[in-house]
């Protein structure tokens, strides 16, 4: 099969996934060449190292799964950083068997507020979730006094985030479960159909009888719960919650979703792409840290990769009307 016919036979959604998957291979090969020539070892090819990187990546993966649902309905959730932090802080503060439900509950509550603001008050999500993020930050600063809270993660949180079963990190199983759930919603459930319909044309979905407000709220709630879960896991991984722990997750999660081929304007994209996008970002980060790339170079490469990938497959129509 020639390259041209391959291009035609691929659906429009599969192409980004294939390209970013091959870019992951490029990263792995380039990184291995570098380590072989400089250090004489090939850590990027060892399963232990890869599993460890994926374990760290699973927090990003869970956030990105929630973010993708919200982006699919052509909204965005900028409240993720402090939803994540608040869930972690509340979970460690409560402790005991209620830690995990409280963490998820915080995410659910924030998602509910976001959803009501966007669906009923019709405030653009870009600005409403930004405000909610500021309020959550304010609440947490008032709660902790601006310092890292002294409370520690519970054993269950630590087990979920940092322990291994059958030689595989538990966090990966959690990520897998979340992925299965999101893929199920998007591909097999009516909710998934509604999500794509709203992302394409909300008015049309409304006229077709979809309860658009309910779906929008559900999407934000799912995103909030995902952020809460990531926060609980991250607190378990680092044994405690700390200020600003969620700041490093907002932009990478959006980037992962978009690199995976999801249209930032909604209505188009597959979950597999988001999965590949997360792995790409995680591996890129780990290769750059092996290379001891200074932060300046990392940022430049990071931005260039996003633009490059999108130039290959993310280009829009000439005029959108």
């Amino acid at each position: 099969m020639t390259a041209a016919s391959l291009n035609i036979s691929l659906s429009r959604d599969a192409r980004p996934i294939l390209i970013s998957a091959s870019f992951i291979l490029v990263i792995l090969i380039a990184g291995t060449f570098y380590t072989l020539s400089r250090l004489g070892t090939a850590p990027l090819l060892s399963p232990t190292y890869l599993l460890q990187q994926l374990q760290i990546g699973s927090f990003l993966g869970i956030v990105a799964a929630g973010m993708m649902i919200v982006i699919l309905i052509s909204q965005i959730d900028l409240s993720v950083p402090w939803t994540l932090t608040a869930a972690a802080m509340m979970a460690t503060a409560v402790g005991g068997p209620w830690a995990l439900p409280v963490g998820l509950g915080v995410g659910l509550l924030v998602g509910l507020v976001n959803g009501i603001g966007v669906a009923y008050l019709r405030i653009p999500s870009m600005i409403f979730t930004l405000g909610v993020n500021a309020v959550m930050r304010g609440l947490m600063v008032a709660h902790t006094g601006g310092f890292a809270p002294q409370t520690a993660a519970t054993d269950l949180m630590r087990w979920l985030a940092a322990d291994h079963s059958f030689g595989i990190p538990n966090a990966l199983f959690v990520w897998l479960a979340v992925s299965a759930l999101v893929a199920l919603i998007l591909r097999r459930m009516a909710l998934g159909r509604y999500i794509y319909a709203i992302g394409n044309k909300e008015a049309a979905a409304y006229l077709a009888g979809v309860n658009t407000r309910g779906v929008i709220i559900t999407c934000f709630v799912l995103c909030g719960i995902a952020a809460g879960l990531a926060g609980v896991l991250l607190a378990g991984y680092s044994t405690k919650a700390y200020q600003g722990m969620g700041d490093a997750y907002l932009l990478p999660s959006i980037a992962a979703v978009v690199i995976g081929g999801t249209n930032i304007l909604g209505g188009r994209g597959r979950y597999l792409g988001t999965l590949v996008g997360v792995i790409l970002i995680v591996l890129l980060n780990s290769v750059l840290s092996i290379m001891e790339m200074p932060e300046a170079g990392r940022q430049v490469i990071y931005g260039s990769v996003i633009i490059l990938m999108l130039l290959v497959y993310g280009r829009g129509e000439k005029v959108t009307s």
Binding site: I76, L251, I254, A255, V258, I264, L265, E295, A296, G297, R298, Q299, V300, I301, Y302, G303, S304, I306, I307, L310, L311, G314, R315, G316, E317, K318
Partner: peptide
């Protein structure tokens, strides 16, 4: 490049910070 402004400037912003 015909890339959506929000994601294009997210990327160029990373470059400028770099």
């Amino acid at each position: 490049g015909r890339i959506q402004p929000i994601i294009a400037t997210l990327a160029t912003g990373a470059i400028y910070i770099g």
